[in-house]
Design a protein around this nucleic acid. Sequence first.
DNA 1: GAGATATGTCAACATCACTGACGTATATCG
DNA 2: CGATATACGTCAGTGATGTTGACATATCTC
Lengths: 181, 181
Amino acid sequence: MSMSGEDDGPADSGLAPEGVTNDLVELLFFAYRDFVGDPDRMLAEYGFGRAHHRVLHFVYHYPGLTIAELLDILRITKQSLNRVLKDLIEQGHIVQKTGRSDRRQRLLYCSETGATLTAELTRVQVRRVARAIADPVADEPKGARDEHGFAAAQGFLMAMIEPEERAAVRSLMARRARSRR
Amino acid sequence: MSMSGEDDGPADSGLAPEGVTNDLVELLFFAYRDFVGDPDRMLAEYGFGRAHHRVLHFVYHYPGLTIAELLDILRITKQSLNRVLKDLIEQGHIVQKTGRSDRRQRLLYCSETGATLTAELTRVQVRRVARAIADPVADEPKGARDEHGFAAAQGFLMAMIEPEERAAVRSLMARRARSRR
DNA sequence: GAGATATGTCAACATCACTGACGTATATCG
DNA sequence: CGATATACGTCAGTGATGTTGACATATCTC
């Protein structure tokens, strides 16, 4: 009797049991928190914030980006972008060049210092992700039950979390498991 | 010159080729953006924001949470928490009960309406994650080359992104691949 | 030359975070 | 019991980042 209606049929549908997926939802929160935590701290020393990081990141990795493209990527208003972009340009981390085919465009590039700074930030984030891929945290040694790819996603996300925090996250989620019974 | 493939020879280090990992870093950004996008829009109708969502989420899933525990989970100050918590209590979505073993504690619970609202938010997020696990987006049909679990992570994160946005993300990242040569 | 487009900017405002200080209720310990 | 610590609440001020709305300027397109 497929209760076909909504969506998450924990029973027989090809989809995930809800309990495990709930864990993934929370792991995503914790993983993302730590994922942006490193750059946040590094940039704070320069007086920059996460918004500056996002601009630096995309300009560094996609040199020659236009303002419009950047706005579309970041999904913020041009006023919001302009505030942080102005900081970065004034401090010489980003430079603008007038577009050659369309002189209205301001193509964005990192300066030497901007590239150095951003490479540093990227290095830290890439390292965290690469390690999480290489050494996912095996959480459920029950093996065998990963037809769906939960354990893989769970191991990856848990490995993205700061090691000292993992115990706290695990014991929190164990608490839900208990109260479900 | 090592033939075989582009450039990224993970060769000896157990770690990931940097190019692919860069993609994962960005996919994480886009995936998280869309992951929180649904609840953001739903809560905006109630005049609530993301901070309210986080409180509702953890109180709903871990009934009886204390203020201190919630502060530790969210990593914000009690002043920040209090602002949103006050909103939620005044509007009857969350109730406080004095702790029985320690009467200083205020144990947090969702009311009926709070539970209904939060279940709705959770449903949307769980659905997105469950689908991404069940139907990861196969991006590199080259197969075979996933000894490290990149393709799996990439497929999961891409599937977390709003379907209409995937083409844009793909073409953006293709642009980096091009400029690397 | 008219109108669309790309960008910059001013002003006002909302959300969500922070610090610092202080108040109250309750628990714990000597 | 009294001192001290803990859990929580709150006032006041500030900063980062987002929003809307309006308007200016340069440049492209027709």
